[in-house]
């Protein structure tokens, strides 16, 4: 299987520095989120099978950075990475940020998002299918759980995010 290439979006001048700063700020949050998910949903690792060791690149098209996930229960990795420093991934999943979040929360159907071309996958398709099935077997809402970790401020951010993404629109990509 061909390793996936880097994210396709290109950076505007100055965005590299913004991306690096955003990654630094986000990292403690991401670490907390992934540890919490692993603790609350241990069964998802069994569904990942051999792809616990796969590097996934999750690429929210409208954000200036991507997310690197390696769902190894012994050495979890979930970090924001500037696009120009993204690792070579076994599989890449690409779409608008809220769509990716809603897929995890089973608010959207992954096949439907693929049919409509709002979701793109590349690299090891089996890895993507396993990750999708593992996440789909989680009860509850990752978005709600994560926002609740940060109290009223977290919930306000989530609400604002949802208002910012009307369902039927696709955000502008960096071009």
């Amino acid at each position: 299987m061909t390793p996936t290439s880097e994210p396709t979006a290109r950076l505007r001048p100055g965005e590299g520095a913004i991306a690096r700063l955003a990654c630094l700020v986000l990292q403690p949050v991401l670490t907390r989120v992934v540890r919490r998910v692993a603790a609350r949903h241990p069964s998802l690792f069994a569904r990942l099978g051999p792809h616990q060791a796969t590097d996934f690149l999750i690429d929210p098209v409208e954000l200036p950075f991507a997310l690197h996930l390696r769902p190894d229960p012994q050495a979890l990795v979930f970090r924001a990475v500037p696009r120009d420093a993204a690792p070579q991934a076994g599989a890449t999943i690409r779409g608008r940020f809220l769509l990716l979040l809603e897929l995890i929360d089973a608010e959207q159907d992954g096949d439907a998002a693929f049919f409509s071309r709002d979701l793109e996958v590349s690299g090891d398709t089996e890895a993507v299918v396993r990750l999708r099935n593992a996440l789909d077997d989680m009860d509850g809402s990752l978005a709600e759980e994560t926002s609740a970790m940060f109290g009223p401020a977290g919930r306000a951010v989530l609400a604002r995010l949802r208002r910012a993404y009307p369902d039927a629109t696709k955000p502008q990509e960096y071009a």
Binding site: R117, E120, T125
Partner: peptide, 28 residues
């Protein structure tokens, strides 16, 4: 179509090819 044999390839113009076991079976 076992997932281990499926690959999606994105072309520069935004088209996407579906491949099974190395054979292109559609291009959108």
């Amino acid at each position: 179509s076992p997932a281990s044999d499926v690959e999606y390839v994105r072309d520069a113009d935004g088209s996407m090819s579906s491949q099974l076991a190395g054979f292109t079976i559609d291009r959108f």
